[in-house]
């Protein structure tokens, strides 16, 4: 469903050229739960944003459902994101002035009938039935992340891209979030999670390790280490 070929992303910094992604070749099948592990600065987030049609690679291509994403213009990529990709971020990125239901429906363009009832049902499923009209600043970190999950899932996208979704959560909430992602995958969705921890490991079908922008063979992270 998703492949990338020779994917590179370079940045020009004051210290010279930084290779954030270097010749990444990756294929993700529909219904897969992929864990991408790597230390801070390994290029995980860059990979995620590039796969999610958010960041133009320096070279290489990303093919999603048969379409080379970066041959599309910005508006077309936006439409792909809107219809087929859900994002979850470590910092939740909830819209502070919208309540829980409003945040979940933020990406809705108003064309989906029953979106509101669907979002409420999803929030019930995620254990947020009692928080529907609360603002983000009235929620705990775990609850915020579950709202972000609901927002990513509500349009039933083919692909969910999660960037350190457990990074700000305690172990219990981390497992809760992973369970929801797993359930989504089991219902036929595709999930890619980038993380530097090991909370997701037990839920993923496949794990790849990233170091200095390259996929490396074999285990990278020591499960005991939780280096940020």
């Amino acid at each position: 469903m998703l492949t990338c070929e020779s994917l590179c992303k370079y940045y020009q910094s004051s210290k010279g050229m930084v290779k954030s992604l270097d010749e990444i070749n990756l294929s993700v099948s529909k219904g897969e739960f992929l864990e991408v592990r790597g230390h801070s600065g390994s290029g995980k987030t860059t990979l995620l944003l590039t796969l999610g049609a958010m960041m133009q690679p320096t070279q290489g291509k990303v093919v999603f459902k048969g379409t080379d994403l970066y041959r599309l213009n910005r508006a077309e990529r936006a439409r792909v994101r809107s219809s087929s990709i859900g994002f979850v971020f470590q910092m939740f990125h909830l819209i502070p002035y919208l309540d829980v239901v409003g945040n979940v429906l933020a990406g809705d363009d108003g064309n989906h009938s029953g979106a509101c009832s669907k979002s409420e049902a999803l929030l019930q499923e995620l254990g947020l039935g009692h928080r529907l009209n609360h603002l983000p600043n009235q929620l705990s970190a775990g609850e915020k992340q579950r709202v972000a999950l609901a927002r990513a899932m509500v349009a039933s996208p083919d692909l969910i891209l999660a960037d350190e979704p457990t990074g700000n959560l305690d172990p219990e909430n981390s497992k809760e979030v992973c369970r929801h992602l797993k359930r989504y995958q089991e219902k036929g969705g595709t999930v890619i999670v980038v993380t530097h921890g090991d909370a997701v490991h037990d839920f993923a079908n496949r794990t790849i390790d990233l170091k200095a922008g390259e996929i490396i063979p074999g285990p990278l992270l020591d499960p005991q280490s939780d280096e940020a």
Binding site: R74, R81, S82, F87, F89, H93, G107
Partner: peptide, 8 residues
């Protein structure tokens, strides 16, 4: 996040 959600 609006951009990530596909808003133009």
């Amino acid at each position: 996040i609006w951009r990530a959600l596909g808003k133009g």
